[in-house]
Design a protein around this nucleic acid. Structure first.
Lengths: 118, 118
DNA sequence: CGGTTTTATAACCAGACAGTTTTCTACCGC
DNA sequence: GCGGTAGAAAACTGTCTGGTTATAAAACCG
């Protein structure tokens, strides 16, 4: 996965307005004014966010007379998940450690087995 | 999931240096100078990146004499994946559509079965 | 103690970013 | 063609970011 693709994807996702726009687009295509409606923000403000999302490949835009309907392009999100998947074992591992620790404290108390206290 | 947690997490992941630092930390704890070594960047530059990662909860730091070893905290990555998981069906759906289209073109040509053209 | 190592802090800079208002373009309906 | 609507573009602002250098703080070593 190209690093600048991940850069743009994660940067686009780092803004709550843009995440809300993506969430809205799960319900289907929407025009700019439809997307702008829920926000206390000017129309050009929303257009800027849409340009960020488009350049990150997270949305695409059609043409319907004066309207430029936006649609979700979820494939790039999969790229992000693919990157994150490499870390999955690490957060699972920490769960296992926590689990083991709680188990020990619960019925045994900590002992030095496997703990390496030289 | 609190929106500012996701803001900080995705923003932290949007930088290739920081992603490389996280990747390095999968191999175990590392000191600041160890983390800085692979990069053509000053030590304070790396320290700034580490502070961003720490404030996002993606790493934690210990104390070993003058050293401040960093360790990966993968749980926050799981939060990011949890958010992304809500979109999984959307990218899978587009795969299915592509699959169906390719299948059609391959051996049948498009017909109206299961397509709902009223 | 004095010197070295490790890290953090401060001050600064260029550029990107989020937002605004104003203006321009394109298209529709009449 | 004219007026209204949808959206983009431009210009400006304040703030955040990513980087630098120089300096300070803390802990070790001899």
């Amino acid at each position: 996965m190209a690093t600048d693709v991940l850069d743009a994807t994660f940067a686009a996702l780092a803004d709550p307005t843009r995440r809300a726009i993506l969430a809205r687009l799960r319900e289907g295509e929407a025009t700019v004014t439809e997307l702008a409606a829920p926000f206390a923000m000017s129309q050009p403000g929303i257009s800027k966010h849409l340009r960020v999302l488009e350049r990150a490949g997270l949305i695409s835009r059609g043409r319907d007379a004066q309207r430029r309907p936006c649609r979700l392009e979820a494939a790039r999100l999969r790229d992000a998940v693919d990157w994150l998947a490499d870390y999955r074992s690490y957060w699972e591992e920490s769960y296992q450690r926590l689990d083991a620790l709680l188990g020990e404290l619960d019925h045994d108390g900590p002992d030095a087995t496997e703990r390496g206290t030289p």
